[in-house]
Every structure is written in C-alpha cells, then in structure tokens.
C-alpha cells in the first residue's frame, strides 16, 4: 500500500515537472501568438486580457502591407540557403578527408576546427567590417553568406566526420577494387549512405544562419537587404516614436519564427542526433 502511494506521488511529481517544462518552453512564444491575434484595443490593457473578445488578423495584414517585411523573409531565406549550401559543400569534402583519407597532420586540422568552433562572432566583427568596406560589400548579400558559411563550417565538419566514420572502411575498399575513383566513392557511396546525416546538418546550419544577428546588423544598413532578426528588432519605432506597435511586432515575431518551429517539430529526432554528434553549438 505504501509502495502504491509513493508511486502515485512520484508520478504526480513527474507530471508536474513535465508540465513546468512545457510551460517554460512554449509559454513566451505562446504569449506572442496570443498578442498577435488580439484586437489592438485589448493589447495595451491593464489588467492584462487573457481571452480576447475576438480573433483578428489585422496585425498580420498590416505586417504584409509593409513592403519591407516580405523582403526580410526573402533575404533571410536567400542568405541562409546560400550559406548553408556553401558550408555543406566545403564541410562534406573536409569531413571526407578527415574521416576516410590518411592526411599527415590531421590532428592539427581537428584542433583548428575545434578552436574555430569556439570563436564568438564579436572577435571577428571589426576586421570583417573593415574587409567588407574594402570589398565594397556593405549592403551586399555576400557579406553575410561568406562569414556564415565559415563560422558554421567547424560544426558541419565535425558532425559529418562523426557520421562518415561509421561507414565501414571495408565497403570503401571493395568499391575501390570495383573501380570506383575517390570522387566516385564520395558521391556514389558516402553521400547516398549518409543522406539523413547531411539533411540533419544542413537543417542545423540553416537555423544558425537564419538566427544570426550581429553581422547582419553591422554589414547591412539598407532595409532592402535586412534579414528577419535585424528587421524585426528594428520594428519598435516604425509607426510613431512614442508608441510601440506590439501587435505588429508580435505578428512579425510569429511569422519570422514559424519556419523554424515547423523545422523543429518535423525534424526533432534528427536535430537532437545532429547536435549530439557535434555537441558544439550554443
């Protein structure tokens, strides 16, 4: 009987902990969603309105009526896709070399990779800003694509290397005897075998690129090329300097983060695997 009681108690505690975890994780975003569908008159209200009198999409309509917002989405998508592509190509080649080919000094390369994975972007900001000015790349998408690809390269290389190492060496030897070239082995054997790993890594790199802030804030100054994080962070003064348009901002936050939430919900298992394999990105 005592056992049953303590079992129930444990179960209760567990359910409570899970509920707390869910509230913690989803609460702040849920509040954005709720704010974004409230009529304006019920947003800046004290006491706070928890159940809106009606659901409205006026903030979303206002958001997309602003010419620049659709542009932020496009810019984020273009920059993140290009950077992810570049990062995956360079990362895949490097991971193949480090995992499957005998390179003199490959421990040294690993050390470099690990060290680069630890670099906070602020360290690179000043010289990169000088470089982008020199190359006349301020307000040019390349100014984001190249640094994003480079900063995520260590992560991509480490994750892919971990996955490539699981492919048995015998298989590659056999392929070689069958007349495959080394390039053929990479593209006809390793790539198809590790397609899930490649997808996982690409998703993670894409998320990191989509979320980057300080380079996007510094290297892009015209509205036409701004990305989602910088664009939304700049929305606070758009309607008037005295009033912050919370409905509009909430609608923007929900729209700008929706692609990521969809990715997470679909690829949760993969993301956990990839993060663990790389164990590197904060």
């Amino acid at each position: 009987m005592q056992d049953l009681g303590s079992g129930m108690l444990r179960k209760g505690c567990f359910i409570l902990a899970t509920a707390g975890l869910l509230l913690f994780s989803v609460g702040p975003f849920g509040w954005e969603v709720l704010t974004s569908i409230k009529p304006s008159s019920e947003i800046a209200q004290s006491p706070v309105v928890y159940v809106p009198s009606r659901v409205t999409f006026e903030h979303y309509v206002a958001l997309f009526a602003r010419r620049d917002f659709g542009g932020y989405l496009v810019n984020s998508a273009v920059v993140s896709s290009l950077a992810t592509l570049l990062c995956m190509i360079a990362g895949m080649l490097a991971a193949y070399a480090l995992a499957k080919l005998n390179i003199p000094g490959s421990p040294l390369f690993l050390v470099i990779v690990l060290a680069v994975a630890l670099v906070p972007p602020i360290i690179l900001l000043i010289p990169l800003y000088e470089m982008m000015r020199w190359a006349d790349w301020i307000n040019h998408r390349g100014a984001l694509v190249l640094p994003y690809a480079a900063l995520n390269l260590p992560f991509a290389t480490l994750v892919l290397r971990a996955f490539f190492r699981q492919i048995p060496q015998d298989l590659l030897e056999a392929a070689r005897i069958d007349g495959f070239t080394r390039v053929g082995i990479l593209f006809k054997i390793i790539v198809p075998l590790s397609a899930p790993a490649l997808a996982t890594t690409a998703i993670l790199v894409f998320v990191f690129c989509w979320n980057e802030f300080i380079f996007a804030l510094t290297f892009i100054t015209t509205d036409a090329y701004k990305t989602i994080p910088v664009g939304i962070a700049g929305l606070s003064g758009v309607t008037s300097p005295y009033e912050i348009p919370w409905g509009l901002i909430s609608a923007a936050a929900v729209t700008g983060t929706l692609p990521l939430i969809v990715l997470v919900l679909i690829f949760q298992r993969r993301i956990v695997q990839g993060l663990t394999a790389g164990a590197l990105k904060g």
């Binding site: 899970t18 975890l21 869910l22 994780s25 989803v26 702040p28 975003f29 509040w31 954005e32 704010t35 947003i43 800046a44 209200q45 004290s46 706070v48 998320v207 989509w210 979320n211 802030f213 989602i228 994080p229 910088v230 939304i232 962070a233 929305l235 606070s236 919370w246 901002i249 909430s250 923007a252 936050a253 700008g256 983060t257 990521l260 939430i261 990715l263 997470v264 919900l265 949760q268 993301i271 956990v272």
Partner: peptide, 29 residues
C-alpha cells in the same frame, strides 16, 4: 514533448528579445 522543449533554442534570439521586452513591460506586461 522533446520537440517542444527544443523550441526556445531554435528561435532567433533577437526576435525573442523583442518578445521579452513585451513580457517584461512594466504596465501591460
């Protein structure tokens, strides 16, 4: 539940910082 627990990590910090300024608002927060 694991997927939901991942959500905060995946969202852009700058965007959620805007959300937090709203949550922390002294009058309407």
């Amino acid at each position: 539940i694991r997927a939901m627990a991942l959500i905060p990590w995946a969202l852009p910090t700058a965007v959620m910082a805007m959300a937090w300024t709203w949550i922390y608002n002294d009058v309407y927060g």
